[in-house]
Amino acid sequence: MREYAMYCADCHEYTDLGAFVEKEGHFEGEYSLLHNRRANHNEWLCRFLIRHAGHTLRMTENRTEAYAELLRSAARFLESDIDEMVEMQLERRRLRDHELAAERGLGQLQLHVLRSLIAQEAEAIAREPTDNAAKGQFLLGKEEGLKQALRLLDDLLAKTNLLYK
């Protein structure tokens, strides 16, 4: 697997980019020994680029002599902050997942409320007295339409329950 490092010749500092994740369009990012994982975002690279704007930057591929020399001799960009940054990214992901779960739960609640309202309306129509056959046919059609909507909602609720678990 090809991995990369970005090196600033002016400051003799580098940041480990890791491999490029083609399907997501970003580098894996710095590696945290504490968390035993890559940052999996480009924030570190962006900070590196901002800090070294106007400097001579060089991207180096692993498995080369230049890469090995870079790791031996250059300072790692904000090395003491890598674990904290990965921790912040993990917390952001947890918060995003929690918000997504809350939104899904709210959507499920809305579907259940809608189902309840449609069921109540169908029951009210079923109990409504009819004066003539035309009104009876009309109410019967309306009730059947609401029952079909209930069936569709039940199918949707079943499918979304499977997806969200």
Rank of each mutant, 00 (worst) to 15 (best):
E87T: 02
E87C: 01
M88V: 01
M88K: 07
M88E: 04
L90Y: 00
L90I: 03
L90N: 00
E91I: 03
E91N: 08
R92I: 13
R92H: 15
R92S: 15
R94S: 10
L95I: 14
D97K: 12
D97A: 14
D97E: 15
H98T: 09
E99Y: 08
L100I: 11
L100P: 01
L100C: 11
A101C: 08
A101F: 06
E103Q: 13
E103Y: 08
R104L: 12
G105K: 11
G105N: 13
L106I: 04
Q108M: 12
L109D: 14
L109H: 13
Q110H: 09
Q110L: 13
Q110R: 14
L111P: 01
V113T: 10
L114A: 15
L114H: 14
R115P: 04
R115S: 11
L117V: 03
I118Q: 02
Q120I: 02
E121Y: 05
E121D: 10
A122D: 01
A124R: 11
I125G: 00
A126L: 05
R127P: 00
R127S: 10
R127W: 05
R127I: 01
E128T: 12
E128C: 09
P129K: 10
P129Y: 05
P129D: 04
P129F: 07
T130F: 04
D131P: 02
D131W: 10
N132P: 08
N132H: 14
A133I: 13
K135C: 04
G136D: 04
G136T: 00
G136E: 06
G136M: 05
Q137M: 08
Q137S: 08
Q137P: 00
Q137C: 04
F138D: 14
L139R: 02
L139Y: 02
G141Q: 08
G141L: 07
K142A: 13
E143L: 15
E144R: 15
E144I: 10
E144N: 14
E144C: 11
E144Y: 10
G145Y: 07
L146T: 04
L146Q: 05
K147L: 11
K147G: 02
Q148T: 10
Q148F: 07
A149Y: 07
A149V: 09
A149I: 09
A149F: 08
L150A: 04
R151V: 06
L152C: 11
L153R: 01
L153V: 02
D154A: 11
D154G: 03
L156V: 11
L156R: 13
L157G: 02
A158P: 04
A158I: 04
K159M: 15
K159T: 14
T160A: 03
N161V: 07
L162N: 12
L162G: 06
L163H: 12
L163M: 12
L163T: 10
